[in-house]
């Protein structure tokens, strides 16, 4: 299990993580959501041992991560920036990984590469952004580590390649039970892949829950109500309400059945509950944190 307890990390005066506490179950696929500068990358760098926390504890399997050789050999970190591999070829990267990750399998790498067809002897500096990420990604999988940390996992990948990568990850999880922690702004990919998500904002964890729970807890409601209907009087946790004529669209947190019952009981002509995508949930949640687009006309 990955655990962060009361972790703080500051960069000069800026608090990237502030009293941050999080647990991630072993074998899970965890998605980190959050605004830019929320602290997601910092979190992943703390987990990979690149950064050392200023306060609190960062442990994997009960052991502190920083300077822990045994533990770090079980973790592979794919950074959001892949320029460090520019001077390597895919073959060179394989040699690099082979040197430091005892679980590395050349056979596995070749098998994974057969699906995407990257040249083995070409320098990565000559690759496109997406190709670089693919190269790093298959090397990471070939290392067969217990923990895979992916920062901006799908950045630069085309839709087909996203699909391939997701399949590779799912197969890896199924085969070896790897724990994947990823951050991405491609929320639909996280929605497709992750079983648990955490929302981070301004260095604090807003929540960390199973994806189904998140999706089951917030709903878009379309209803038709007459004059004098006051949705606030229903006693629901309404995040947003838009009225267009007699049709109201609301974003409400809570149980779907309860919401439906209250609207009907309250005199609504109808009440449709529409499931929200993760992206919509993210936007509405962030609006609740004062992070929204309403400031721009």
């Amino acid at each position: 299990m990955i655990k962060l307890v009361n972790v703080t990390k500051s960069f000069n005066d800026f608090k990237a993580l502030d009293d941050f506490t999080l647990s991630i179950e072993k074998g899970s696929a965890y998605g980190l959501l959050g605004s830019n500068g929320a602290g997601k990358s910092t979190l992943l760098r703390l987990l990979s041992g690149v950064y050392r926390q200023d306060g609190g504890y960062v442990t994997i399997g009960g052991e502190s991560v920083y300077d822990n050789v045994k533990l770090k050999s079980r973790v592979f970190f794919v950074s959001d920036d892949t320029s460090q591999y520019n001077r390597m070829t895919l073959k060179g990267m394989a040699d690099f990984c082979k040197t430091f990750y005892t679980g590395f399998s050349q056979e596995k790498l070749e098998k994974l590469n057969s699906a995407i067809g990257l040249p083995m002897d070409k320098e990565l500096s000559k690759f496109s952004k997406g190709m670089k990420r693919q190269a790093v990604f298959i090397c990471a999988l070939a290392c067969s580590t217990e923990y895979l940390l992916l920062d901006e996992a799908f950045d630069g990948l085309d839709p087909t390649m996203r699909l391939i990568v997701k399949k590779m990850l799912i197969n890896e999880m199924a085969d070896s039970g790897v724990t994947v922690v990823m951050s991405s702004h491609a929320l639909n990919e996280i929605e497709d892949f992750c079983d648990t998500v955490g929302l981070v904002h301004k260095g604090k964890l807003i929540y960390s829950r199973e994806l189904d729970s998140v999706k089951g807890d917030i709903h878009k409601v379309q209803t038709c109500v007459g004059d004098g209907f006051d949705s606030q009087a229903l006693g629901l946790d309404i995040l947003k309400e838009t009225v267009l004529g007699s049709v109201s669209t609301l974003i409400i947190k809570g149980d779907a059945d309860e919401i439906h019952r209250r609207f009907i009981d309250g005199g609504a002509a109808f009440c449709d509950i529409i499931p929200l995508s993760l992206e919509e949930i993210f936007i509405y949640e962030m609006e609740g944190q004062g992070y929204d687009s309403s400031k721009i006309d």
Binding site: R45, S48, G49, V50, K70, F77, D81, F100
Partner: peptide, 18 residues
């Protein structure tokens, strides 16, 4: 001197002393 290189080398299974 390079953040991307820091990500690569500092996440390797080595202590800072090693």
């Amino acid at each position: 001197t390079s953040k991307s290189d820091a990500d690569m080398y500092l996440s390797l299974p080595l202590t800072s002393t090693q």
